[in-house]
Structures are given as structure tokens and as C-alpha cells.
């Protein structure tokens, strides 16, 4: 498979940033070598500094800048108002939609859609059934290993692309409860938008000071940043189509550049990893890929690309 087949995507912003910060962020993204941009609020429907119309405007601008835009959607759908907003996004004719819940899959049935990593696609039979419904691309579930990906790829239906998260704090759980509000002794319905103060989530430590998780409103993330930059060659060999970078508040454009140069062959993965580690809020992890605890950081041998 040709090296250029691996495309770069930028996942949705998982945090709550100010309107100016979001607009400035995407102004810069327009000039980066990222191929696909996922846009939209996926965590909390109370976050309203960027409204649905604003996301459509941004989609238009990024499309004009040559990006493939996908509109992403909430992972946890509870209220009718959330379904109403979801229906509007799903009904659009211009952009592909990323479903992050089976409710969104239901609304997209019969039309092309992307299934995000919070849609549980753990086996070939699930992948085939969703392909019948219009699945065009799926994001590999975060907790599964490279060995499982290889098995899935061997039964993947034609016309379905595979995307893997290769950089970012890992979303691990969703709740009705807002943990950021809880940390400030505030009820969820009077959260005072405290998420705005934590542009990369609020780090939670064990009592021995090990930085363990990151609270992001109703979402709980890993404190460590998943990085699979040293696995890009393996992914290419496994027939992965798209690799995803999850935005962070600092220097996402540099992160994109590092991945882009590794994909193009202008930067060694080991050097890429070294540079990335300077940009992470805490440290790196890659355990899930190796079939281990997700928080572990396993050393990978670089330059032992199978089949090369």
C-alpha cells in the first residue's frame, strides 16, 4: 500500500474553550497539512459559546481551505433538546456526520456516516451490519489492541475506511454527573462553566501524586496522552486509512506537523515521539495498542517494520 494513503484527521475539540480561542484555533488549522477536520460539541450540550450555526460557518470556511469536514455529535444523549440539535446536524446535506451514539446512527441510517470511537464496534459482524446501514468510516475503539485491529481489518467490508486515534488524552467515560462542577462543589445545573478554566481538562491524581485522570465536565479522560507515532508504519501495513489527532490547547499545529513529517518520511518516529513528549500535559501512554493497560507506556522498537 502506498505510503501516501495514510491521511491525517483532527478530532473535535473535547474541551470548552472561549469563542475567540476556538476561532483562532481553526484559523491556524486551515493552514496545517491535516486532511480531515471533525467539528462540533461532543461532550456537553450546555457548552454554548459556539452554536450549531457557528459550526456550520466554520465547516464552510474549512472546506474552502481544502479540508474534508465532518460534523461530530454528542456522545451522551439524554434530553430531547439534545436530540433536536442532533437531528438538525444529521439532516444537513453538505457534510458527513460522525455518530458518537447509537441514537445518531439511527438518524443516519441509509446515508453515509462515520462511527466515532464511542460507538462499540468490537467485531466483524458489527462492522458489517453498520456498513449495510451506511457506515463509511469507523474509528477503532480506544481500548482494543493492534492484534484485534488486524483481525477486524481482515474482515472489513469494502468501502469502509478505518481511523485510529494516534494522539490525545483518551476519553475513558461519560456520566450524567459533571465532575468539574463537583470538584468545585457546584451542582451541574449551576456549573458556572468552570470547564472554561481547564483548556486541557482538570488533572486528577492518586493520593501518592500519580497523575491519573483528567476531568472534562461529564467526560473522564486519561491524564496521559496516547501517542502512537511509532506505530504509523504498522498502521499503514494494517490498511488503516486515517489517523486522528485530538486537539489540545497548546501547539496542536506543531503536533500535526510532527505527524505529517513522520508520515511523509521526513522525520524519524523516535524523534517525533521525543518532540511530542515535550508538548503533552503529563506524559505518554500506548498500552491499549499493545493489549495492555491503557495507561502503560511500552517502548516500541523503531525500524522493525514488518514486511519491509
Amino acid at each position: 500500500m502506498a505510503a501516501s494513503n495514510l491521511r491525517l484527521s483532527l478530532g473535535p475539540i473535547l474541551y470548552y474553550w472561549s469563542r475567540d480561542d476556538v476561532m483562532e484555533f481553526y484559523r491556524r488549522i486551515a493552514d496545517t497539512p491535516v486532511d480531515i477536520v471533525y467539528l462540533g460539541e461532543t461532550v456537553c450540550s450546555k457548552r454554548n459559546l459556539i452554536r450549531t450555526d457557528d459550526w456550520f460557518d466554520l465547516a464552510e470556511r474549512l472546506t474552502a481551505a481544502g479540508k474534508e469536514v465532518v460534523l461530530s455529535t454528542l456522545a451522551l444523549l439524554e434530553a430531547e433538546s439534545e436530540l433536536k440539535r442532533l437531528r438538525r446536524i444529521c439532516a444537513n446535506d453538505n457534510y458527513l456526520v460522525e455518530a458518537n451514539d447509537m441514537g445518531a446512527v439511527q438518524l443516519m441510517r441509509g446515508r453515509p456516516f462515520v462511527a466515532g470511537h464511542s460507538v462499540n464496534i468490537y467485531n466483524g459482524r458489527t462492522l458489517r451490519l453498520l456498513a449495510e446501514e451506511g457506515l463509511k468510516r469507523w474509528v477503532f475503539p480506544l481500548e482494543l489492541s493492534a492484534a484485534t485491529l488486524a483481525d477486524m481489518q481482515s474482515v472489513r467490508p469494502p468501502g469502509v475506511e478505518t481511523e485510529v486515534l494516534v494522539y490525545g488524552r483518551l476519553p475513558l467515560a461519560y456520566s450524567a454527573r459533571c465532575f468539574t462542577a463537583r470538584a468545585h462543589n457546584l451542582p451541574k445545573d449551576d456549573c458556572q462553566y468552570r470547564c472554561l478554566d481547564y483548556p486541557d481538562g482538570l488533572t486528577l491524581s492518586a493520593q501518592d501524586d500519580t497523575r491519573f485522570l483528567a476531568l472534562n465536565g461529564i467526560q473522564t479522560q486519561s491524564a496521559r496522552t496516547c501517542s502512537l507515532i511509532s506505530e504509523l508504519d504498522n498502521m499503514r501495513d494494517l490498511g488503516v486509512d486515517v489517523v486522528r489527532i485530538s486537539p489540545q490547547s497548546r501547539k496542536t499545529d506543531q503536533i500535526i506537523d510532527i505527524f505529517h513529517r513522520c508520515i511523509e518520511g521526513g522525520l524519524e518516529p523516535a524523534e517525533g515521539q521525543r518532540r511530542l513528549e515535550h508538548l503533552m500535559p503529563v506524559a505518554a501512554c500506548n498500552g491499549y495498542w499493545h493489549g495492555e493497560a491503557g495507561m502503560l507506556a511500552t517502548q516500541t522498537q523503531v525500524g522493525t517494520r514488518p514486511g519491509s
Binding site: 481500548e143 475513558l172 456520566s175 450524567a176 495492555e292 493497560a293 495507561m295
Partner: peptide, 21 residues
């Protein structure tokens, strides 16, 4: 469970094993 069931992988993040897997 305080997290929405079926989409919580906190356990496998620490141990490699989760309710799903």
C-alpha cells in the same frame, strides 16, 4: 455505576480488562 455503562473503559485503562472486553 456513575458512568454510562458500556462506554466506560476506566477499568481497562488501569488494568487492561474492562466490562466490555
Amino acid at each position: 455505576c456513575v458512568m454510562v455503562e458500556g462506554r466506560c473503559i476506566l477499568s481497562s485503562y488501569a488494568t487492561g480488562l474492562s466490562p466490555n472486553t
